[in-house]
Design a binder for these strands. Structure first.
Lengths: 126, 126
DNA sequence: CGTCTATGTTGACATACGTCGAACCAAGTC
DNA sequence: GACTTGGTTCGACGTATGTCAACATAGACG
């Protein structure tokens, strides 16, 4: 039975080929200074516990977006939350949009996929 | 979402079970403070351009290991290289071993895989 | 042993970073 | 308009970080 070979469209609404070609996998070849600069910026953005929690909260929220009020319970003051959300936004990991009273943040799916590719264990290496 | 509820085993090829169970994918559920602390430590280690270049140089080197002398051309002084390699080691991303005159660093493949999983776009989320 | 090469460690310094309180802006509500 | 709630920006402060020069350590090789 070829049950596993069914290429059913497991809900890939986003995550298209538009994955930003930031850098090759870390294991493919030594990064250039420029590549390292770019990739480090993204890693750095996730290199703080509070930001990681905020990002995870947004990413795991209904539809990949969340109101600030829903995720700001991470143990720091609200200005600090805002500060970190801005950093994530500056790093290109989140986007924000104001809808009436509340501000909603949502993840940038392509960036997530790009980072995942960075950490791919080179299959050809072996 | 009735049609999409098929939980078919969408090709989970390698990624051995030896992957350290640090945290769930970022998109699965909000990280706890503890998970965030752990994961952030790894991201932080790669959040510096110099460290990223060093790590990439080691990871892409023959057999996933490299002598310091082979990778220390990243534009900073030798003590700084040593400092960053120590940080990567402390973060659990590299291991070192002295063989005669030279010291060799090698990647911790399980950690790489674990981080890759973190950035997995949750297939069940949606 | 002495010396040379390859790395790691220490101390110092400038900068970046995380955090908060206070002030400020944006939408609703009265 | 005034008041309330949600969120950002500003200014300040303490700490962490990246960097280097100088020194220390570990083998190799006479």
């Amino acid at each position: 039975m070829s049950n596993t070979t069914k290429v059913l469209p497991l809900l890939e609404p986003e995550v298209p080929e538009t994955v930003v070609p930031c850098c090759p996998p870390l294991t493919e070849r030594p990064f250039t200074a420029e590549e390292a600069e770019t990739a480090a910026r993204m890693f750095k953005a996730l290199g703080d516990p509070v930001r990681l929690r905020l990002f995870s909260a947004v990413a795991s929220h209904e539809g990949g977006e969340a109101c600030v009020c829903d995720i700001s319970d991470v143990g720091v003051s609200q200005p600090t939350v805002s500060h970190h959300l801005k950093k994530l936004k500056d790093a290109g990991l989140l986007t924000s949009e104001r809808r009436g009273t509340w501000v909603y943040y949502r993840v940038e799916p392509s960036v997530l996929a790009a980072m995942g590719k960075l950490l791919t264990v080179a299959p050809s290496a072996a």
